[in-house]
C-alpha cells in the first residue's frame, strides 16, 4: 500500500488532481454549513456581479447565489457521477466476465449485445431514456449507467480472456474450484487495475453527461446542478458572464482532476509501464 502511494506520488499531475478532487468533495460535504438554506432562495438583487452584495460569485437572474448553487450542485454532480459509475460497473463487469470466461457462443452473444449499444450515439440514447422516464435523479443515473457500461464490458472481457489461459487459473480448475469461485477469487482480483483506472475516467464522463442533460433542461427539476446553472445563465451570458463561467469552471476542474487521478492510478497500478514512460522522458 505504501509502495502504491509512493508510485502514485511520482506523477505530479495526479497529486494536483487528487488535491482538487478532495477540495471539491469537501465543498460538497460542507455546503449546508457554508451556504445554509436552499440554493433556490433569493439572496440578493438579480444580476449582481461577483463581489457585490456579499455575493462571492455574483447572483443570477432571480437573485440566487451562484456560489451556493455551485456548492450544492457539487453534491448532486458527484453523487450522480459515483452512483451511475457503480451501476455501469455492475453491468459491465458481469457481462464482460461472462463473455471472457465462458468464451464461445456466450462470448459472441454478449459482445453482439454490447456492440448494439455501442452503435447508438450515447448522448442521444441518454436523452431518449430520460425523456421517456420523466426527468428525475433516478432516471438520469439510470440513463448514464445504460450508456456507459459497454467500454467496461469490453475491457473486462479482454482481461478475462488473457487471464483465463494463465496457469494459475488452470491450476484452480484442476483443484476443482467452482466457476464462480475462480472468477471472483482468481481472475477478478487480477483484472482490477484497469477497471479502477477506467472507473475514475467514467466518473468524469458521467459528470459531463449529467451536466449536458441538465443544460438541456432534462435534469431533475428539484435539484440544483452545475449543468442547470450553465443552462440558466446561457441566455444572459453577455449580460452576466459569471452565471455560466463559474459553474463551467467547476465542471472543468472536477473532470480534469478525475482524469489526472485516473492517469496517476494507471501509473501506480502498472509500475512496469510507468517506469518505461519515465525512462523514455
Amino acid at each position: 500500500m505504501r509502495d502504491f502511494w509512493r508510485r502514485f506520488r511520482r506523477n505530479k499531475g495526479a497529486v494536483v488532481g487528487l488535491l482538487i478532487l478532495v477540495l471539491v468533495i469537501l465543498l460538497a460535504a460542507t455546503a449546508p454549513w457554508l451556504f445554509p438554506g436552499s440554493p433556490w432562495d433569493m439572496a440578493a438583487a438579480p444580476f449582481m456581479p461577483p463581489g457585490e452584495m456579499d455575493m462571492l460569485l455574483g447572483s443570477d437572474s432571480l437573485g440566487r447565489d451562484v456560489a451556493a448553487g455551485i456548492a450544492h450542485g457539487a453534491r448532486i454532480s458527484l453523487l450522480v457521477g459515483a452512483v451511475s459509475t457503480v451501476a455501469a460497473l455492475c453491468i459491465g463487469v458481469s457481462l464482460g466476465a461472462i463473455a471472457g470466461y465462458l468464451g464461445g457462443v456466450a462470448d459472441d452473444a454478449v459482445m453482439r449485445f454490447t456492440e448494439f449499444f455501442q452503435t447508438i450515439p450515447s448522448f442521444v440514447l441518454a436523452i431518449l431514456l430520460v425523456a421517456i422516464f420523466t426527468p428525475s435523479i433516478i432516471s438520469v443515473v439510470f440513463a448514464i449507467a445504460i450508456v456507459s457500461w459497454p467500454p467496461v464490458a469490453r475491457v473486462v472481457r479482454a482481461e478475462f480472456l488473457s487471464l483465463r489461459s494463465r496457469e494459475f487459473v488452470q491450476a484452480a480448475e484442476v483443484l476443482g474450484k467452482t466457476r464462480l469461485a475462480i472468477v471472483l477469487g482468481d481472475i477478478l482480483p487480477n483484472a482490477l487495475s484497469p477497471i479502477i483506472v477506467l472507473s475514475s475516467l467514467m466518473v468524469a464522463s458521467a459528470i459531463l453527461l449529467e451536466s449536458a442533460l441538465s443544460f438541456l433542461g432534462l435534469g431533475d427539476p428539484n435539484l440544483m446542478t452545475w449543468g442547470f446553472l450553465i443552462g440558466a445563465g446561457r441566455s444572459v451570458i453577455r449580460l452576466a458572464w459569471w452565471m455560466s463561467v463559474f459553474p463551467g469552471l467547476a465542471i472543468f476542474l472536477t473532470v480534469l482532476a478525475l482524469n489526472l487521478v485516473g492517469e496517476g492510478l494507471s501509473d501506480a497500478l502498472n509500475p512496469r509501464l510507468a517506469r518505461q514512460r519515465g525512462g523514455a522522458a
Binding site: E167, F168, Q170, V174, L175, G176, G185, D186, P189, N190
Partner: peptide, 24 residues
C-alpha cells in the same frame, strides 16, 4: 461429476511465475 477425481489427479505446471495467483 469430475470433482471427486480432482482430489485424486493433480498437476504441476511449467512456469513457476505464472502458476501461482499473485494476489493470494
Amino acid at each position: 461429476a469430475w470433482k471427486p477425481f480432482r482430489q485424486r489427479i493433480q498437476m504441476i505446471f511449467q512456469d513457476p511465475y505464472a502458476s501461482l495467483n499473485p494476489r493470494r
